[in-house]
Amino acid sequence: MLDYLASLAVFAGIYALLGLGLNLVWGLGGMVNLGLAGFFAIGAYASALSALHLHFPLVAASFFAMLLAAAAGALLAVVTARLKGDYLAIVTLGFAEVIQLIAGNEIWLTNGTDGLSAIPAPGRGTLSPLAFDLSSAGIVWLVLAAIAAAFGRLSAAPYGRVLRAIREDEMVARIAGKNVLSFKIGAFSASAAVMGLAGSLYAAYDGYVAPDSFDVLVTLLVVLALTAGGVGRMQGALVGAVLVVVLTEGTRFFGGLLPGLSALQVASLRQGVIGLFLLLLLRVKPDGLLPERIRVHPLDDEGETTR
């Protein structure tokens, strides 16, 4: 049971990282980046390959993964600089599909659909399975805490203000003297780097990566997590990710409660229940559990009270 909880914590942490990454670019910057699974895959493969062939330790492999994902993010940002809304969503979704296709077909590099296995990770083989799960959970949540703190700072700083302005009216941001394109490239690559980092941790923990781990379902779940948690607020991304992982995993036990249903029926029922729950949640809290807040400044020497 404890190792199950520990592995749940690992996955929740990885989803939370993806959620934070998406929140920077979509929640603050307003750019619908559905290329998430692509950056996640780039990070996972970069980390796995550098660990397998170059014997990079996890830290170095993760930096490599972030670098590669950030570069891909910057490239995608430049290419899509003039796209917005649905058009941006479609192009970024296409990018993720392309990455998955490459992972499936460039067999010399990725070993195709068979995937890469026996990816080394700190403690695998030397620690007991339980200790490995616990230490992995510790590593993931430490990384998550660091990234959440960093993104929280970005969001609260003037940097976050500019991204929010770009989200709502790009032209006003430009008239305010901001170089919108460079903000877009920066946000895109920072978010891609964090998604790549999530991929690196995933590859190390699972020890195995294959193209079908990076399909559109991952993107969908993270978008759901962010919507449920609260778009535009970093804590919202964390809460939403934990909620979605708990929901998807928690409903796993349905089968036991409902004898007489086939595995397929239980699986469909699970998805239905998750969907229903999120629908109800958004009906009650349309802006998610932790909606974005207006920043309240003290009005100092006037002695005015603040809300």
């Binding site: 929010r164 009216d169 207006i294």
Partner: peptide, 8 residues
């Protein structure tokens, strides 16, 4: 008028 609606 074109302020940023969700900023204070």
């Amino acid at each position: 008028a074109r302020g940023i609606p969700r900023l204070s």
